[in-house]
Design a protein around this nucleic acid. Structure first.
Length: 91
DNA sequence: CGGATGACGCAGT
DNA sequence: TACTGCGCCATCC
């Protein structure tokens, strides 16, 4: 796989429990690729539920919502409260 | 070598 | 807030 994909996987792995990051935080130039990687990966150690859209909405609906609530991620309705739960993007 | 396609982002309306 | 259009990058055809 490309090193770009490796970087994406690394960054997803690095998201701590109770926090989330957006597709754009993980790869600003290719957010859609982030989604593709997640959809293809079957790795149980990849915390896929911690990757959300830029507005806090969830790509995987209810299941994702349950998992996030279970690890204490603050929600506002159907979306994650990013002001509280966003893990800082690297500069 | 185009063209379409995704767990998307952003600006404009 | 919702919807639209266009940009983005690796892949697949």
């Amino acid at each position: 796989m490309s090193q770009r994909v490796d970087r994406i996987v690394e960054r997803i792995r690095a998201i701590p429990e109770g926090f989330v990051r957006t597709y754009g935080d993980i790869d600003p130039r290719a957010p859609r690729l982030v989604g593709l990687v997640l959809s293809e990966s079957h790795d149980p150690d990849l915390p896929w539920q911690r990757v959300v859209r830029a507005d806090g909405s969830l790509a995987k609906g209810d299941e994702q919502r349950r998992l996030l609530l279970r690890e204490g991620v603050p929600m506002r309705g159907e979306r994650v409260d990013l002001r509280e739960a966003r893990f800082p993007p690297e500069l």
